[in-house]
């Protein structure tokens, strides 16, 4: 079985053969031990230990099933890694790349709750024009108020919460539609 692996833009070919493992065509010695623990919590993952040509790496790994990527943490660094089966690479990998390229340009900005908490205030309403960095929702968690801000400029198309409401992590709060590139609809200032 051969995998094509994307490590944040750097590509590797990892091939498992009956007689050994090859990375980019060169044989390597590999031993991976996966920890026994596999919890179901929001921050659960796999704790693995890898010996790669004798070099030791302790790796915390979490699979983001929605995006089909692995979030790996090693030596205090985080790496987002996609491993595609080579025979499916042409289809899956290209599509993922295309989606990633497109995602940067289009699509609404969806503000979701970064943690469970209480909505203290909603600072915008549907139809409002917001600047990048403008506060949208004030949320209280861990006794601290957090100002959740817009990452884009655009128009508020939906507000899904109101003050006093408690929300779960990941719950959709506000949707902002970026201005259209081609139309003359982008207002100058709010």
């Amino acid at each position: 079985m051969k995998y094509v692996v994307d490590v944040e833009g750097e590509w590797f070919e990892v091939e498992f053969r009956p007689n050994g493992v090859r990375v980019d065509g060169r044989p390597v010695s590999v031993e991976l031990v996966e920890g026994d623990v596999r919890g179901a919590g929001p921050n659960s993952g796999i704790l693995a230990h890898l010996l790669l040509d004798g070099r030791s790496f302790t790796i915390a790994a979490r699979r983001d099933d929605a995006r089909a990527v692995w979030n790996l943490e090693l030596a205090g660094r985080r790496l987002t890694v996609s491993a595609y089966e080579a025979r499916r690479w042409a289809l899956q990998g290209q599509r993922a790349l295309a989606a990633r390229a497109a995602g940067a340009a289009a699509g609404p900005f969806e503000l979701t709750a970064p943690m469970p908490g209480l909505i203290v205030d909603v600072e915008v309403a549907a139809g409002d024009l917001v600047r990048k960095g403008q506060g949208l929702v004030i949320m209280e968690a861990m006794k601290m108020e957090n100002d959740l801000r817009s990452e884009v400029e655009g128009i508020v198309t939906a507000v899904r919460v109101q003050p006093g409401q408690t929300v779960e992590r990941g719950e959709l709060l506000v949707v902002i539609e970026p201005p259209k590139e081609d139309g003359g609809e982008t207002p100058e200032n709010g």
Partner: peptide
């Protein structure tokens, strides 16, 4: 190492 671990 990350590439090999992810593939494994």
């Amino acid at each position: 190492a990350a590439a090999v671990a992810a593939a494994l």
